[in-house]
Each structure stands twice: as C-alpha cells, then as structure tokens.
Write a protein that binds this DNA or RNA. Structure first.
Lengths: 367, 367
DNA sequence: GTTCTCTCTGACAACGTTGACATCCGTCGT
DNA sequence: ACGACGGATGTCAACGTTGTCAGAGAGAAC
C-alpha cells in the first residue's frame, strides 16, 4: 500500500491505517459526525496530527457536489472602488467557511464570459458579479442552470438573481442638484463606459435634475466613455476646448473626476474657482486630494457584506427567492464645488420617491 | 442512465452518449490529444456545444493531482499597496491558465496559518505570500513538503523558497539621507508592524543613514507599530508631544505617512514647512494628496509579475531552484519635504553595495 | 500472405472522499 | 432467554475525470 498519495501528501487511508480504524471512521471524525468512540476519536486525531494530514477538498467537492468556494468577478481590483467591496465579501465568505476566487475583466464582456466559464468549471458554489458587462440573457441562462448569482450595481430580470445596488439615478440627481444649487448652469457629465448600467443610471439622474431645473440637456456637454485617470483627463480637455466650456462637471466616478482635476491643474485652472467637480464612489483618495473631492458615496463595505451574505444564503438554501437591496447614495460635500463642506447646498426641490432617504429593501415580488 | 450529473450539470458521459463515442474519446477531444478522427472530433464538439458541457475541474484535479489554481495570501486588499500587486499576479496567472484564490490575513500570523492550511486543502499548485507574518520554520516545512512557494518582501532560508523583494534597507537609507541632505537633524521613524520583515529593514536603513551622518540613534524618535491611517495619526501625535519634537519624519509606509499628515494638519502645522515627511510604497494616492508625498517607490506591478511568473515556473517544473530577485527602491521626490520635486536632494555620501542601483538578481547559491 | 506499424478507439482502474447500507456487539425490556 | 434497540464500526459504490493498456483495422514492408 502506498505510504502517501500521488503528490506526496498523506491521504485518509494512511490516517486510517495509522489509527487502526477504517477510513470511514476517520471521515466521521473529520466531519464531526456522531457515533465515534472517544478512544477511536483520540487515536484518529493523533494520527492526523502526526501525519499533518489535510483532507483533499477536490475529492470532497467531487462527491458532495459543493466546493465551498465562490467566484468573484470584478472589473479591476486596481480601481479603488473595488478593494473595500472585495475585502468585505472575503471576510463574510471566510467567516462562513468559503474561499473566494477572484477574476478581473477590465470591463470586457468576453473576458467576463471567459472568467465565469472557468469559475463554473471550478464548480464554485455561487457567483458575485460587479461591473458586469455580459448580456442579460447570458446571466439569465446561468440562473436557469441554478447557479446562485448576485449582481452588484446592476439588475437582472430573473426570479433567482439577487442584486445589491445603490440608486445611481438618485445619486446622479443628487450630484447635479448640488451643482445647480450652487448656481451652475453649464454642467457637464464625464461619462463612464457606455455599456455600464451605473453609467446609464447616473446619466439619467443628471438629466432628470437638469429637466427639473428647467434646463435643456446638451449632448455636447457629455464626454468620456471609460473609467480611468487618463479618460478623465481627455474628456475634461475636450470639454474645455468647447466654445462655451462648462463651469461644473459631474463625473461618472472619482477616477474620472481625478483625471479631470489633473487636466484642470495642468491648464492652470482652479477648482472650484473656475470649474466645480463632483465625483462618485467616495474612494479613499477622494478625501485626500487637493482640493478634497465632493462626491456621491457608495457604501462599499456594506454592499460587499450584503452581496456575500445574500449569495451564501442562496447557496446554503436558506432562501433562494430573488431579493433586490437598494441602498441610498450619499452626497459628501468637501471642497471641490465651493459649498460649505459637510452639508449639501440647499436642494432646489424635494427628492421624489423612496431613494435618497434610507436604504430600502424590496422583496422578490418582481418578475 | 442519468441524463445529467448530481448537480444538474451535464457530464462527460452525456456528451459521449450524444456523440456516440466513449468518454475517453471525449476526454481526448477536450484535452486536444492526438489520434482522434475528424469525424469523431466534430461530433464531440457539437455535442459539447449542444449540452453546454463544462469539464469538472474538481474531478480533473483529483486525478491529475494539479488544480491549476494558486493561493495568494496578503495582509489586506484594502491597503493600497496590494491591489496593483494582486492585479499583476492575477494577470500572469490568467494568461497561463491558472486561477487565484485570495486570502486576507490582517497581518495576523494565526489567520495566515489558517489561510495557508485551507489553501493547501484546496490543493492549490503553489502559494504566493506577501506581508507574511508566519514563523520561518512553518514556511520551511511547507517547502520541505514540496509546495511551490514564493514570498514577497521577505526571505525564507530554504533551497526551494523563492522571493521577490525590494531592498528595504536601501530604501530606508534613501529616505533618511534625503531628509538629512535637506538639513534635518531630528528625524523620526514612524514604525510599521514589529513582526514585519520590511519594517525591520527600513528601520535598519534609517539607522545606517543616521550613523553615517554621525548622528546618534534616539529610540524616543521611533513611534508607531502598525500600518493604518489611525496608527499614523497616533504615532505622529506622540512624536509631536515630545519635549523636542522631530522636524522630519520617515514613515514605514504611505498609509502611516498620510495619517501623520492628517495629524499635522489637525494641529495647524505645515508640511513641509514645520515637519517634512517621507513615505514608502508610492501608492496611487501619494501623488494626489496635499502636499504631494515624497516617498520611496516599490515597483508593485513588476513585483507581482515576477512573483507569479516565478511561482508558475516552479509549479510547471521549469526550474525549481531558489531564486531571489531584489529590486531597487526609488526615491520619488514630490513636495512633502521641501526639496525640488523630481530630483533627490544631494546625497551626503555615495550609496554602498549593489542596491540603490538597478535591480539585481541573485541565483540559488545561498543556503 | 504474414508481420509490422500506425491510427483510432474503448474498457477499466485509479484519484480521495462521502453516502447508503450492513454488521457486530452490548444492554435493556419483557 | 430472547428480541429489539442503538451505538460503533466497516464495506462498497458512487462522484467525473484521466492514465494505462489492449485491441481493431488499414496499409506498408518483407
């Protein structure tokens, strides 16, 4: 009989032999099952320690059909929005005995598809998708195949796909109304990736705010189409080269806002003196830049916690019905708009609907 | 015969049945093996597509003894030092067909041990450890068990443990000499975690620079012992409450430096006017804060790439001998010290030894 | 015509674990 | 004294894949 497994590591068989019991008894001890005598248990525990035995999760997963791992698909861990989210997800997962397999996609739908595919081959027990660019039909198919699925900042119309998101429309409105209240009339939008659900929502909020203020929507004042410092710089440059450049900018996210900030500084323009800026996300950086950035905060840690908890509840069958958790965005007023920090400029009108207040939770009623 | 596997997903058996071949032939097609007729191959490919079949990586890993995944153990993904490193590792791994399982440990040796243990149960093909706090003996044991292992910013004396690190002693010297050259004589060190290899090295570099300048080492000027904004704030506060507070501070990392910056601002002190600050890492934030932080840069992306490439080479048996790659730290002069940005203050003496120049690579000669 | 070689194919036994079920042995109730 | 019961243990067949080996044809070489 082999003293060790193929790859040199001890198996349950060696433990059993050493403890003088059957492999089933060892299995029972490992899994804390009942009906094992104290004597046997002690011998098994000793043998495990002596051999430094570790159960093979692959074999276990193969027979149980559960891998105790989840897949996490994000755009780019180097984008400061994601680390707090990932960390929270990881913490919840670890606390419940799951591992996280991380995949970056750079907002590319094909890479995302590939990542999901590989994750599925790995037999992850569930999937969390943030900044997902894959067509909705693809995700519906996943759900139809009974893969537990939670999406962040996007919605999938399927009775088993849960979501946690901040109300980006409300957030866009919040940001724009703040600039409006400060007297700005030419407000630009620094757009994010066109395929992004969040981008479209923030743009919608921006337009809503303009309309409510009786201002026309000017397509020339929308520039950008990505999410990076460089994209922010370029978009800001394009805007500044307009005949009538904007006096204020609402950026898709803080990265774009920071890029814009760089470009403004490069041209010797002052913020907020010459141009006011509002970002989105409230990444750690935002509070530290010069001037500190006014931005719409997303509760990243809470989002991560909610997403992971929800997913694992689905995985463990505690509740499989769809649940959509919508969190309220929050305007963080710092110095990049010229308002009194810590409080929003007086809003021109009351926000409508539930968003903008506290987080609301909607059950699985829809679809 | 079951139409689908236990968990509802098609198996190689269904594919074989549908294509009218044996499972072995399907296996051959999947793995691109030779000796499959065009006709058979086509039928198999079609069946795979129709069933949306995905090979089960667990089963595959069980029989081949390789999981095509690596474990990545770091202190905290929310610490801005790590995302670029992680991203680079992930990219290399993905390009070579591996997945990354991520674990945060919060610098806690027990959690690290636990994470490594779980990763080993998962049968990862190798391990990358950054900010590792576990005793060296533990890692030597791992290496003795033939687990491919690469450590970042730490060294393990074992003929099979590779490492990639920046010369933190040289970095500490660089930072301190910069402050010295600017005329500072009371220079404090904002210490990182005492158990950290990097912390000890940077402290050593700091002391070396002092000695070379003929200055005494004053233990009172060392404060801190963690790595966070809060710790930086507190340590800075303690330093400022001294009878003779320092005129300059070298911080273990940029997070500590930023914390110090906050505390100084809170007390109405100016940087660099009243106190000069040098950080370490050159996180993205560093260039954006006010004032832009002078800091010692670590080439995080390159480190990640090197570590992952090295590990996978070991995993794939391309070369198993130990290799230590030492990269040179680089002083990035911005505004937090009062020097002319972009260039270091004139160093009081020539750096000694290979570090401080270009990166050097030492082979497996040691141990 | 026989043997050899080469291509293609499939049967079968692993891999390390758990689940279903069987068995053995005391002890208790009657 | 006997059956029933329940604790403690073991046997065996999965799980879904790949590795080993053997075999069937089809040409090629002698």
């Amino acid at each position: 009989m082999a003293r060790v497994g193929r790859n040199g590591q001890p198996t349950i068989k060696q433990v059993a032999a050493r403890a003088g019991v059957s492999i089933k008894t060892v299995s029972r001890v490992i899994n804390g099952a009942a009906y094992v005598s104290e004597a046997a248990r002690r011998r098994v525990v000793r043998a495990i320690a002596q051999l430094n035995y570790r159960p093979n999760a692959l074999a276990r997963g193969l027979v149980t059909g559960r891998s105790r791992s989840i897949g996490l698909v994000i755009a780019d861990i180097a984008n400061p929005f994601f680390p707090p989210l990932v960390r929270a997800i990881e913490d919840v997962a670890a606390a419940r005995g799951y591992n996280v397999i991380l995949c970056d996609t750079d907002e590319d739908a094909d890479r995302e598809r590939g990542a999901i595919s590989v994750l599925l081959e790995r037999k992850v027990d569930g999937l969390i998708l943030s900044a997902s660019r894959v067509p909705e039909a693809f995700l519906r198919q996943l759900a139809a195949d009974r893969i537990p699925l939670v999406v962040v900042n996007r919605v999938v119309r399927h009775p088993r796909v849960s979501a946690v998101l901040v109300d980006s429309v409300a957030g866009g409105r919040l940001a724009t109304e703040h600039l409006l209240a400060l007297g700005h009339r030419r407000i630009a939008y620094l757009a994010g990736p066109p395929a992004s659900f969040s981008n479209r929502s923030r743009l919608r909020g921006y337009r809503q705010a303009l309309v409510r203020a009786g201002l026309p929507f000017d397509p020339d004042l929308v520039a950008g189409g990505a999410t990076s410092l460089a994209a922010g710089r370029q978009a800001m440059a394009a805007l500044l080269d307009l005949d009538r450049p904007p006096t204020a900018v609402f950026a898709f996210d803080d990265l774009m806002a920071l890029g814009a900030l760089e470009e403004l500084r490069r041209r010797g323009l002052r913020v907020p003196g010459d141009v006011a800026i509002v970002g989105f996300d409230d990444i750690d950086l935002a509070a530290f830049v010069d001037p500190p950035l006014t931005t719409v905060a997303q509760p990243k840690v809470e989002m991560g916690r909610l997403a992971a908890t929800r997913l694992l509840d689905m995985v463990e069958g505690k509740s499989s019905a769809r649940r959509i958790v919508t969190l309220a965005p929050q305007l963080i007023v710092r110095h990049s708009c010229g308002a009194q920090p810590g409080q929003a400029a007086h809003a021109p009108q009351e926000p409508r609907g539930p968003a903008g207040r506290t987080g609301s939770i909607r059950g699985g009623a829809e679809e």
